[in-house]
């Protein structure tokens, strides 16, 4: 017996960027978990995080897969006009990789299997000996774990991210081709793009997100606060369907194959998952996590790492991060309403 209220909306559109951690909305759609809670959900592939962000803020999308820091940045008005945004469920933890181009990693002596501090120090030593070299490193968005993890890793090598390298923003699906074209010498990006660069022998894995920030929230579902207030029952059902999708994924190793098949459909990740024989979730060195109720439950304290970076950014502009905004963004209240209910999905 489910006690979910009837949804105010029957049809909705969610935005996503082609990444492995778009998996839960894709599974919920393809596996019928949205249908089971009475929602007809369209998934709209977006070509850039800024476009996805603006469409959510303007109401052209009901919600979207978002970089974990994005709802906070939107609420604080960083990078665009303020728009109160919530992260009612986490969609993934870990999954980022720092990849250096083959040329740069060979010159710097960075090898696969190095500890992050070792690879960073190797790059640091190389750049100290070659001051004319200023590598261009790609990341996906200024307010992203990719940006902050890259800065953290560079700091391990004694490098100043603002002086010693040039940071350049590119959407995830462009990262591999940019490395191939020599436009960037390295990047920090989410899966499958990091492992794809390695599989195509374009670069070497220098560090992973989980090594730098273990089990840190990576993507969340983002909806505006005004949307959540207008459609509370729809939001509950949305969370329930995503949670059911994650429980299904966890239930049987065979489901990982099925999920990979769905992800490789052309509207989603298409051929970018060709190099993955199955989704190897939870295994080192990338250790991406897409299921576990504790993994998906939002938590303001788990947002600590990026909240600190955002606070630093704001202080440079004479502002401060207020903890009320942080707590509201990542409040588990909506999640907890749903997580303890019996599943709506047929087993």
């Amino acid at each position: 017996m489910t006690t979910l209220q009837d949804a105010e909306l029957g049809r909705l559109t969610l935005g996503f960027v082609p990444l492995l951690d778009a998996a839960l909305p894709i599974i919920a759609r393809e596996g019928g978990f949205f249908d089971a809670v009475g929602l007809e959900v369209m998934l709209s592939r977006e070509s850039a995080w800024s476009t996805l962000r603006d469409k959510v803020a303007a109401g052209l999308l009901d919600g979207a897969q978002m970089l974990a820091p994005l709802p906070l940045a939107m609420s604080l008005g960083l990078g665009r006009a303020p728009c109160d945004t919530l992260a009612p469920i986490t969609l993934s933890r870990n999954g980022n990789t720092i990849v250096l181009s083959r040329s740069l990693s060979e010159r710097a002596g960075v090898a696969l299997g190095d500890e992050p501090a070792d690879s960073a120090r190797a790059l640091g030593a190389y750049l100290a000996a070659h001051p004319e070299t200023r590598p261009r490193l790609g990341m996906v968005y200024p307010f992203s774990c990719q940006h902050y993890q890259l800065r953290r890793w560079l700091a391990l090598g004694g490098l100043d991210p603002d002086q010693d390298v040039e940071l350049s923003v590119l959407p995830p699906p462009r990262m591999v081709e940019a490395m191939q074209a020599g436009e960037i010498d390295g990047c920090c990006v989410g899966e499958p793009w990091g492992s794809l660069a390695v599989a195509r022998e374009l670069g070497t894995l220098a560090a992973t997100g989980v090594q730098l920030w273990p089990d840190h929230p990576e993507k969340v579902l983002g909806v505006t606060r005004s949307w959540a207030r207008r459609y509370p029952a729809t939001l509950q059902r949305l969370i329930a369907a995503l949670l059911d999708a994650s429980r299904w994924l966890a239930a049987d190793p065979e489901h990982l194959h099925q999920a990979r098949e769905w992800l490789s459909l052309p509207p989603y990740l298409d051929r970018s998952v060709d190099h993955l024989s199955l989704l190897s979730l939870g295994t080192p060195p990338i250790a991406q996590r897409l299921f576990g109720d504790d993994v998906l439950r939002p938590d303001p304290t788990a947002a600590g790492h990026f909240a600190e970076h955002i606070d630093q950014h704001m202080r440079r502009h004479g502002r401060r991060l207020d903890h009320a905004t942080l707590s509201e963004c990542y409040s588990p209240v909506h999640f907890d309403e749903v997580a303890h209910q019996p599943s709506a999905a047929p087993r």
């Binding site: 977006e46 070509s47 850039a48 995080w49 476009t51 968005y141 200024p142 923003v169 462009r174």
Partner: peptide, 18 residues
């Protein structure tokens, strides 16, 4: 163009460009 993947690059210039 709204749907250009290069929007992120342009969008971030103001935040990153010191």
């Amino acid at each position: 163009d709204m749907d250009s993947p290069d929007r992120d690059t342009l969008d971030s210039m103001a935040v990153l460009n010191r």
